[in-house]
């Protein structure tokens, strides 16, 4: 549809408008990714940069590439996002302390090297080479032409890259794997263990927070039927964080009832 519109002569202006709107946004997002304090914000801005790139690809007639860019990079950034949440922590922000010695200088050298490599590659492909245009490349259909190139001319490179990726994935699994030396405590085992204790007080589970209390918030201990608070009803996490309220505040006043 878009490629058709481009062919039909309504070409230059919309493309220019798209470029001048999207390009600054992409650059700002990329800079924001570098300078954002929270790691999650960086990941989000990265996703946005990738999506803007996809817009450009689609506008240039590389429809398949654009769509695949979205599929692949949204998934990849999502993984990054999960890594941040699970490995670094929910509210993590950048620390500028160099933990590994010489990391900064090494990474600067690597970045400059990679940049030089990319510039030389792209330069070799564009400077002096005659461009044939998207129409020639898409003559047999965008997807078909891409598939033909990938599975005939570049099949070796393609296979090598996929082998590399599989090796990396396996390596990650090996590194992250830990063998269980004890059998896992399942629900059933926990239940048995509860009943094997000296007292049966916790056999039916701990009291839930807020039960019988004047508040039903999770940080307010439950009241037992006699009006005394039950601190065991508060989650261990809240206790460790110190988010537990003083239980005496919520105690019911026990009035002496005269027996008739």
């Amino acid at each position: 549809m878009i490629s058709l519109a481009l062919q039909m002569g309504a070409t230059k202006t919309p493309e220019a408008v798209l470029f001048w709107i999207m390009a600054p946004i992409a650059v700002i997002a990329a800079l924001g990714m570098l300078f954002a304090k929270k790691a999650v914000h960086s990941a989000l801005l990265l996703a946005w940069v990738m999506i803007t790139l996809a817009f450009f690809y689609i506008a240039e007639g590389a429809l398949f590439l654009g769509i695949v860019q979205v599929v692949v990079y949204t998934g990849a950034v999502m993984m990054l996002f999960l890594f941040i949440l699970m490995l670094v922590g929910v509210d993590s922000s950048d620390s500028l302390v160099e933990t590994i010695k010489g990391q900064r200088s090494t990474s600067i050298v690597a970045a400059v090297g990679l940049g030089g490599l990319l510039i030389s590659l792209v330069g070799r492909a564009t400077v002096g080479a005659k461009s044939l245009g998207v129409e020639t490349a898409n003559a047999k259909g965008n997807v078909q032409a891409l598939a033909e190139e990938l599975f005939t001319k570049y099949v070796w490179a393609f296979e090598v890259v996929s082998a590399l990726l599989i090796t990396a994935a396996l390596g990650a699994m090996v590194l992250a794997h830990s063998q269980n030396i004890k059998s896992r405590t399942a629900q059933r085992d926990q239940s048995i263990a509860r009943f094997r204790k000296d007292s049966l007080a916790e056999a039916a589970g701990l009291p839930a927070p807020g039960v019988f209390a004047r508040h039903n918030a999770v940080d307010v201990p439950a009241l037992l039927p006699d009006g005394t608070p039950a601190p065991s009803s508060i989650s261990g996490t809240l206790k460790a964080r110190g988010d537990m309220l003083e239980s005496a505040l919520f105690e019911l006043e026990v009035k002496e009832v005269e027996e008739d």
Partner: peptide, 18 residues
């Protein structure tokens, strides 16, 4: 009607998870 329509739907869906 884009030639990669179904792939486009998958892409949009994976964007929606965000």
């Amino acid at each position: 009607d884009i030639p990669v329509g179904v792939l486009y739907i998958l892409a949009v869906a994976s964007f929606g998870v965000y």
